[in-house]
């Protein structure tokens, strides 16, 4: 399997993402430059975290018009797998590949800390190697991670089990304290209608080795790669 990591001017988790996928046996990783319109026949596209184009205007709003994004949108629309992490999630929302928007954190601060996620749906391409209700520890680091969708969009996504990760406390309960940014319903990660596009604010690629404090992010990445190869 070949994974392509898109680099926008201002991406800063591109190498972490490269490393995280590289650690999985049988996975080849390539960088994709934002100004190119060639996806180099990858099987999966990853939009990494960072501050693409300085996050000017709104996070992800300018990156969404990069030449590579035209190809990424076509790729996703034809069923290709796309993963957006943090800033990459913001780009996916701005592109319309996922519903909703990410607003400024409710406390107006940049939040950088460890969170606990609960796997809400272990029946997706991204989570099939995980257990329903499994708790995963990994960091968040963002200023605009407050997920918002109007009530009808949100209730539709909930009824289709498309909220696949939620912020919870150590006991696995959704609480306001466990939610780092004020996201509606504690949403931390969602998938598209067809299930081929994942957007999440927490950083699985920063939790792949014990020395980093957690290996739980690696579980998500391995779960996905195993299901695909």
């Amino acid at each position: 399997m070949k994974v392509g990591i898109v680099i926008f001017p201002g991406s800063n988790c591109d190498y972490d993402a490269y490393q995280a996928f590289k650690m999985v046996d049988g996975v080849e990783v390539e960088y994709l430059w934002h100004g190119s319109d060639d996806l180099k026949s990858v099987d999966v596209v990853v939009l990494p975290g960072g501050f693409a184009h300085g996050d000017y205007l709104r996070a992800g709003s300018i990156a969404r018009f990069s030449p590579i994004m035209k190809r990424v949108i076509e790729f996703a629309e034809s069923g290709g797998f796309v993963i957006g992490i943090c800033n990459g999630f913001q780009v996916l929302l701005e592109s319309g590949l996922l519903p909703g928007a990410l607003m400024k954190n409710i406390n107006l601060r940049f939040v950088c800390r460890e969170v606990i996620l609960r796997v809400e749906n272990a029946n997706t391409a991204f989570t099939s190697g995980l257990k329903q209700g499994q708790l995963l520890r990994m960091p968040v680091a963002h200023g605009e991670g407050n997920y918002y969708a109007d009530i009808s969009t949100l209730s539709r996504m909930e009824s289709e089990s498309r909220v696949i990760f939620r912020y919870v406390d150590r006991e696995g309960v959704v609480t306001a304290e466990a939610n780092p940014n004020g996201s509606i319903n504690g949403v931390a990660g969602i998938v598209s209608e067809k299930g081929n596009v994942l957007g999440m604010m927490p950083h699985p690629e920063r939790a792949i080795e014990h020395i980093l404090g957690s290996i739980d992010g690696g579980h998500i990445i391995r779960s996905f790669c195993m299901a695909k190869t």
Binding site: L57, R58, S61, I62, F65, L93, E94, P99, G100, A101, M103, Y148, A149, D150
Partner: peptide, 8 residues
């Protein structure tokens, strides 16, 4: 298309 995000 760009200046506003119609979602919010």
């Amino acid at each position: 298309r760009l200046l506003a995000n119609p979602v919010i």
